[in-house]
Design a protein around this nucleic acid. Structure first.
Lengths: 185, 185
DNA sequence: GTCTATATAAGGATAGAC
DNA sequence: GTCTATCCTTATATAGAC
């Protein structure tokens, strides 16, 4: 793993845990164990490293989804896998929210040029979920269902973060899974 | 209206539009039209003004909810009023997200001492919604339904902000209203 | 590639004149 | 109450030695 990759990995974690604005070069350099001066050899500006982090997250999630696709379970199982992210990543979500949603919200407030790239992460899941709902037999409203589920998972992440409530997450996860099953025509 | 109130109003708007961290004293002082030095006559620290903004938001929402209560419509109409916030404040939400959710998320990442106070805003709506569901005849699971609706509205706000999509908001609002009506035993 | 040193700006906060 | 001036710290960014 290259030093550049180390930096992106550390920045990814820190942007998630502390937010983009609140994370300084010193924080990232410190986490990687290099000097601030050396940092600039790898990345010229903060926006440059944000782009790299977003690209890394996109690569990551694409890999995850194509892994799921290759295990070719039925669409309902795939949807369930998506919903279960809230359980699998429950601890992190309770502490820091959803990495996609919180970054998107922060960049919107900063009116940051990378907003569009960050939202491509949402689009990735939206399109993948839409495919699952199509395969489930809901081709006529697959995008609507995808957005609905995406919204619900975002809302659960936000409130799980605010209230730090495991039981609430589990309850909502089961409710979403039931809702998804009910969509089968 | 006192100068102090002017400052809180400006800070409220700026914290919402730009985020707490990204808003400087200079921004607030500039918006109010006073010098940075004068600012410190009214508020000693940034945390102090955050407390004042949260207190103002809490007062504001309490007034809103008690206004609704005094018009004594049926609980379903009250719930509908809550859901309709997404329409009424649609433009702002598309640009800056939900003022409650985005502040809560930001303060969580900053691990800010005011987290608890900010989340009292969520609790205010949670308890009020729970009352409505109780009055609707769902006393046995009123808090669960309240959290469910709160989560859904948060999710819609997050995605409306990311995708700037009016049709999506309207669709989800209708869906939530239908869901609420379906809860009547 | 990595470091130290440094330039430059911004933000939070204070002192003291008016 | 309001201002200017100032201090301290942090943050982005660069230069240049090794």
């Amino acid at each position: 793993m290259s030093k550049r990759d180390d930096i992106v990995t550390a920045a990814d974690r820190l942007f998630y845990e502390q937010g983009f604005e609140a994370t300084s070069f010193a924080d990232i350099a410190g986490a990687v164990g290099i000097s601030r001066g050396n940092f600039y050899y790898h990345f010229k500006t903060k926006d440059e490293i944000l782009d790299a982090v977003i690209a890394a997250r996109l690569r990551d999630r694409k890999t995850l989804l194509s892994d799921w696709d290759m295990q070719d379970g039925d669409p309902l199982s795939n949807i369930r896998r998506f919903i279960d992210i809230l359980i699998v990543n429950g601890d992190k979500i309770k502490h820091f929210g959803c990495p996609l949603g919180t970054l998107s919200s922060e960049l919107a407030k900063l009116n940051h040029p990378a907003q569009k790239d960050a939202n491509a992460l949402f689009t990735l899941f939206r399109d993948w979920l839409s495919q699952q709902f199509s395969a489930l037999g809901c081709a006529d409203k697959s995008d609507e269902l995808a957005m609905h589920l995406l919204a619900r998972s975002q809302g659960v992440a936000t409130l799980a973060n605010a209230f730090r409530d495991d039981a609430f997450i589990r309850q909502e996860v089961e409710d979403m899974a039931q809702w998804a099953a009910d969509q089968i025509p």
